[in-house]
């Protein structure tokens, strides 16, 4: 192996390079969403922005929490919370696949010296009512990106569709730095002193403590109550929105729709999803309950997506408002999102 650790990018360099690359290609650089999510897809910058006709390009890092994946910081390849760099291109440009390959170059990967494969890997999130068709991108046998042509989100067919590129940052950094443990990844290197801060220095404590919380300490009963409170509030908001949007007479209606806090409703839905994940990791959800609880979260997500589409039309009323949810035509979708580590 000729690549040396010292000239490979640090974790933060990697993020900066990718962000710069996509900013130069017209993406808005967003910051991580500040509510717990299981994947970059769930951040409103993806979930809500892909709905409706308006073109949009955005990139952001999203720390993604998956309580059940925690390993107390003991497994070199698995994390409770990993970082995704998420790029949404709406609509996808014709050369999106080449653009993606260029972004690998920007990270410092010489494509001519590596083996890149696009392997069929379609994606579905039952909780979000979302699915898409695409590839997992393999770099020398390592899955580094999930590349998805989003088809449906919140049960709504997308027009236009979006391309979603989800980079697994820890995997890529470990690969570039040629380290076997995520915790050995160099996060930052002080340019003056050369002193190094590792991924472990930054994150090991929360891997340990959140594993303890999610597997042992979370109060099941209270977590359930949190869940139910968030769900109830979200539902109440959706019901109020339905009432507001139904009444389409009078002058005050358009502003009333426009200012309605659907974004807050979506935060509540995200909280439900995360609380469900904690309960699941805690072993508090029985077989029979599980399907039902997922369906409850899905109902919220789908309700919000529909309302959001309606709200975005801001006062323009047409038959499309009544557009029914369509069933996906695809079968046998894989239900897992890229998890950032091998």
């Amino acid at each position: 192996m000729t690549s040396s650790k010292s000239n490979s990018p640090t974790f933060q360099d990697l993020i900066l390079r990718l962000q710069t690359f996509w900013a130069e290609r017209g993406c808005v650089l967003q910051q991580p969403y500040d509510v717990e999510v299981g994947a970059g897809t769930m951040a409103p910058e993806t979930f809500l922005r892909v709905l409706g006709p308006k073109p949009y390009k955005v990139g952001y890092v999203q720390p993604s929490r998956r309580p059940a994946d925690g390993r107390y910081g003991e497994n070199p390849n698995r994390l409770y919370k990993h970082m995704q760099l998420q790029v949404i291109l709406k609509p996808p440009p014709d050369d999106v696949q080449d653009l993606y390959l260029e972004s690998l170059g920007a990270m410092g990967i010489d494509l001519r010296q590596h083996d890149i494969k696009f392997e069929e890997d379609n994606w579905e999130s039952p909780t979000l009512g979302a699915w898409g068709i695409g590839w997992q991108v393999m770099l020398d046998g390592l899955e580094i990106t999930q590349f998805t042509y989003f088809q449906q989100c919140g049960g709504v067919d997308l027009e236009p569709i979006s391309a979603e590129l989800t980079y697994g940052l820890e995997r890529i950094a470990a690969f570039l730095q040629d380290v076997d443990s995520i915790y050995d990844i160099v996060w930052a290197r002080d340019p003056e002193t050369g002193s190094v801060t590792t991924y472990g220095d930054v994150r090991l404590a929360d891997e340990l403590q959140f594993s303890v919380y999610n597997f042992e300490a979370a109060d099941i009963e209270k977590t359930w109550r949190h869940f139910e409170l968030c769900e109830a509030e979200c539902k109440a908001l959706l019901e109020r929105y339905a009432a507001v949007s139904k009444d389409r007479t009078g002058d005050g209606i358009a502003p009333a729709r426009k200012r309605f806090p659907l974004l807050a409703a979506y935060d509540l839905c995200l909280k439900c999803s995360h609380l469900f994940n904690i309960l699941d990791a805690r072993g508090a959800i029985s077989v029979t309950e599980r399907v039902g609880v997922i369906a409850r979260v899905r109902a919220l997500a789908v309700g919000i997506a529909k309302a959001w589409v309606d709200q975005q039309k801001s006062g323009v009323i047409s038959d499309e408002d009544k557009q029914e949810e369509e069933k996906p035509t695809a079968k046998r979708l894989k239900t897992e999102k890229v998890s950032a580590i091998s």
């Binding site: 010296q113 590596h114 046998g141 390592l142 040629d178």
Partner: peptide
């Protein structure tokens, strides 16, 4: 030619086997 790709594949497999 430089064994870079081989090295990458070995690394991934090692992680998988360790798991």
């Amino acid at each position: 030619p430089q064994g870079i790709i081989r090295h990458g594949h070995e690394r991934v497999l090692r992680a998988r086997f360790n798991d």
